[in-house]
Design a protein around this nucleic acid. Structure first.
Lengths: 226, 226
DNA sequence: TGATGTGAAGCGGTTCACAGCC
DNA sequence: GGCTGTGAACCGCTTCACATCA
């Protein structure tokens, strides 16, 4: 049986839809049409309908969607109808910040453990979770029913850590190390690459400078033919 | 003059290529072919060539690319041939973690200031940068030549902060608030949405459970026709 | 009437495959 | 011979437009 052939883009949008619907519900709305949802949150109505229709017929023609039931359905689809236990590998600046970060603690995700190789850190607590020795990775993962791993180690350790994660049977990984880890079919990796993100912004800035400045393209030796 | 019609996907890849080339250089390689680069880092050779060719003819047929000169060219293209000054708005857990985070301090990006509305925080130092009152945003930005803003405030303040950022003339924004901020032509926003990322992983996990478990799809009321 | 669900068209990005050049 | 640069084919996602149904 194929895992799923629903693109990451779609699942990301489902998450956004859920968030939007929660906002609407908090405002007391009980139904919403795809058009209204789209206008309110700068989305595309056809895309909303298509994304949702992939999982069932949740809407009512002439009416729209019931906010409450659509929220329930999205939560089920996204696997948010049960809790997820998260571990963070690497308790440097980023790792501890993430452990402490509210976004991870809210909703259905709770950080159950951190890991490090540095003996001085082991045993300390960060945001309610203990730092364990990476040597005990597998047993701590099993004991705490951890199903999501966050990789927050330096680039050169990331590959090795991923193997460890895979061996422990974890199937979902959020990777903050600036390396393109290759996922297998049974292990999904989402890489959040802050450096790439910044450099991409820098590229954009380099382009705007030429607009505000001389009108020349930024200096690039870019004669098409030499 | 059009800003650029180069996709975000392309610029992200340019950043990756640069990183890969730096690694090759540190290993003493002086030339590399697109095929070798692709194989080594799990990329696609045609895509590498196409991405690079967009900016000039950097390669030599029969040889490949000179690592050194390609690095220089990529740095120029990405606007990394000069420094960028970054500010972080919101000095909560995430904001301070980012200020402290090495990834932001390395290379050409340096965090020059943080901002907050909480009087108790103002004046404190985080990772070498001071926390300023958000009221003085514009003047601090000007004084420090800040050209990139990181938004690390709660969702409900993000929109308001973005206006402030735009008004101060900043054109590049990295957004960690879970809201789809809409960028204008002159202001580029990159949103890093950790919640969406996690929920997308959760979706994937919900799908794999059916494989390991009963063979049934995860419980969704997904009869196509009712 | 009003909004969904969906085939079809459109579009952008990726990959192929090869002519052209070193 | 080897590898780049690039038109063309391909593929997948997005958007359109409308038949369908409450």
């Amino acid at each position: 049986m194929k895992a799923e052939k629903i693109s990451e883009l779609t699942t990301n949008r489902l998450s956004i839809y859920l968030r939007c619907l929660l906002e609407l519900r908090s405002e007391g709305q009980s139904t919403v049409s795809s058009a209204a949802l789209a206008k309110r949150f700068h989305l595309n109505s056809a895309q909303i309908r298509k994304d949702l229709a992939y999982f069932g017929e949740f809407g009512i023609r002439g009416v729209g969607y019931y906010v409450d039931t659509l929220i329930d359905n999205l939560r089920t689809i996204l696997g948010l109808d049960h809790d997820h236990n998260v571990c963070i590998i690497g308790s440097g600046r980023l790792g501890t910040a993430l452990a402490d970060y509210n976004g991870f603690r809210k909703s259905n995700f709770s950080v159950k453990a951190l890991f490090d190789a540095d003996a001085k850190k082991i045993g300390k607590k960060v945001g309610g979770a203990e730092i364990f020795d990476i040597k005990n990775f597998q047993s701590v993962v099993k004991r705490n029913n951890i199903d999501i791993a966050v990789i927050a180690v330096p680039a050169d350790s990331a590959e090795r850590v991923l193997e460890l994660v895979a061996k422990a049977g974890i199937k979902a990984v959020m990777n903050f190390a600036p390396v393109p880890l290759k996922a297998s079919d049974h292990l999904k990796v989402r890489t959040v690459d802050l450096t790439t993100c910044l450099e991409s912004l820098s590229f954009f800035l380099a382009g705007t400078e030429s607009i505000n400045g001389s009108g020349l393209k930024p200096k690039r030796n870019t004669r098409r033919k030499r």
